[in-house]
Design a protein around this nucleic acid. Sequence first.
DNA 1: ACCCGGTTGACGCTCTAAAG
DNA 2: CTTTAGAGCGTCAACCGGGT
Length: 357
Amino acid sequence: MTIPDVARHAGVGQATAARVLGGYGSASAATRERVLAAAAELGYSTNAVARSMISGRTDTLGVVVADVENAYFARAVRGIADVAAKAGLQAILANSDEDSDKEKAAVQLFIERRVDGLVVAPAATDDEHLARAVSAGIPVVLLDRVLTGAALDTVVVDNRGAVKAAVTRFTEAGHTRIAVITSAMPGDDGTRLGPGADIWTTTERVAGYRQALRAAGIPRSAELIRHTGYERAWARSAVLELMTSRDRPTALFTTDNVATLGTLDALLDLDARIPDDVSVIGFDDAEWTTLIRPRLSVVSQPVQELGGLAADILIRRINGAAARPRRHTLNTTYIARESTGPVPARTRRLRAPAGCP
DNA sequence: ACCCGGTTGACGCTCTAAAG
DNA sequence: CTTTAGAGCGTCAACCGGGT
């Protein structure tokens, strides 16, 4: 059923039926009613493909994140989708798995699909493909991460400051053996970043950690900085190793959801008591952080607002806003709960249970 | 028989010009 | 206010004439 069918059935001209059904131009109330009745009777529904052909819009937003299963991205996507829906746009998702090639492929596919705009949490510092999207007339807003080379609207939080403030809680409580667990890809030695893994967020958070140590006059030691990769199991084994080593840390800061889950997993296996054996602060106030005991102290970021703001800026761009691209930095808050405490008086020996890898 | 580059028409809708 | 006629959007299959 197409507009000519509806027009014929309603006994009006094709253009009139199109105007009524498309919601543009004018038509008398009586005509409108006839057209709508005919459309309902015939079961007409708009052909969005045909509409896009002339309008040049698809009313869709492409969203590329590392992994929608990650609670952080899930909430961000929720924020994006809600704001998009209010503007009559639909978000389409792709996962990059922090792989630059996958991200490029996803962006290319979105360009081919002629999405009206893109929200990307970039996996790497390479931005050529994003510039291509922009020159193809598809505006791009970066989420969660900054690309230094690109002049793009960007929505982030103050990662460095947030982590510095949180780690300072540790130093103020007297901790000096403070480890940081990140789920960035490690290099060969397990402590430095691997090639292409210099994700802005992680870099900033580790920088915040370093600043806090420096401010407290604590010499930094490389073995306390662990880049464990994007699998929770990897973070887990890194923490198992770290916590059973001599001179183990008394405080752990985890920079993201995956690292936090892997860390807690390891501490459960070690039967470590939080915070008596080790204090923990995580980044991101996931829902489950208050369901466990002790409740986890966290840096909380307004994830859903972050996504919503990204979508909002993007929609403005789609509608022709020409302002110079800028970085929007939202604030985080530290939420003190029960997972942090003073330095343990003496370190109880921790060991992994038998059969535990 | 085949391959080549080029042209045409079809898809469903939006939008304009011109006329009723 | 409403109508008709028609251009055009981007892509593809089908077709065309011309060449191997």
